[in-house]
């Protein structure tokens, strides 16, 4: 016995592609689909993986990142699986990839119209924190009743003076649907706004696919007098490549101080190499 190309049977792939098409037609709307069981565990990127496997063809070049790095164990694991069942080329270079599967980050380098970004989503429902019942949240979306999402932000402002609540800050897509952008940092929310590329989001365990098509309006929820704020690292620059204004990881410098480095490691390398490599 041998496994089929890209693991899933063709009927399943067609169904996933149909759900993705529908998602593109209704930006930000969560399209239910019959998520398949995958060889990796639920919650480890099976939604993204199903999209990747349904979309991938022999000509594609795949990049997989987890928390900003291609060498995170989970990224390695997913890349290994796709490569083993398809034989497609893989890369670390954002610019060379046609298909990028990512967990919790949008790459620093702006993507082009020829690239598709697939984001893994743990909790696709932006209203889940305030409303546990699925049949209620579906109705809220249908009626565009987003009071609950704003109320959560309002309470946050009352308590902490800021509407910015860590990663996965909800966004309004195309002026209609409030969407969970997946737990990307707030800095990455802005990369989805009027982007050149298609972003597909897949939640395997919760069985939802949704999309931000190219050139779509994406606005992070905020108030007229309390604007949305992205993470700020002050004037900190990456200690490796010297860049500012990107998402940085913190490290202990071994001397009681803090060191910052680009979270997007492959882009950091690309920047270093552009500055002139020492070798």
């Amino acid at each position: 016995m041998k496994h089929p190309f890209a693991f899933l049977d063709e009927g399943s792939k067609r169904e996933i592609r149909r759900a993705a098409f529908k998602a593109v037609c209704i930006p930000g709307y969560q399209v239910p689909f019959a998520s398949r069981e995958m060889p990796i565990a639920r919650g480890w990127g099976t939604g993204g993986l199903q999209l990747t496997l349904a979309l991938i063809g022999p000509q594609d070049t795949l990049k997989v990142i987890d928390q900003g790095t291609d060498e995170s164990v989970n990224a390695v694991n997913i890349r290994r699986l796709v490569h083993a069942t398809t034989g497609v080329q893989t890369t670390h270079h954002t610019a060379d990839a046609t298909l990028i599967q990512s967990r919790h980050r949008v790459p620093d380098r702006p993507l082009s119209a020829k690239q598709i970004l697939v984001l893994q989503v743990p909790i696709p429902e932006p209203l889940r924190r305030v409303e546990p019942r699925e049949h209620v949240t579906r109705k809220r979306h249908a009626e565009a009743d987003y009071t609950a999402a704003y109320l959560a932000l309002f309470e946050r402002v009352l308590k902490y003076g800021s509407a910015s609540a860590g990663a996965d800050h909800p966004v309004m897509v195309a002026g209609r649907h409030v969407m969970a952008p997946s737990p990307i940092p707030r800095l990455d929310n802005e990369k989805l706004h009027r982007a050149e590329h298609l972003t597909l989001l897949g939640a395997g365990r919760e069985k939802k696919i949704y999309a931000v098509p190219p050139h779509t309006e994406v606005h992070s929820l905020a108030f007229d007098d309390v604007p949305f704020e992205v993470e700020s690292f002050g004037d900190q620059a990456c200690s490796t490549c010297g860049t500012t204004g990107v998402f940085l990881d913190e490290f202990d410098d071994g001397d009681g101080g803090t060191l910052y480095r680009c979270n997007d490691t492959s882009e950091c390398l690309a920047r270093l190499n552009a500055q002139g490599a020492p070798l």
Partner: peptide, 28 residues
């Protein structure tokens, strides 16, 4: 498959989300 998967995903790195939360905590 769903319950054991999601429970075990808690072992995955959450560096970025945690860093973002850390930022929010420091800001407040």
């Amino acid at each position: 498959v769903e319950s054991s998967g999601f429970i075990s995903h808690l072992k995955l790195p959450h560096y970025v989300t945690f860093q973002s939360e850390l930022q929010a905590v420091r800001d407040t």
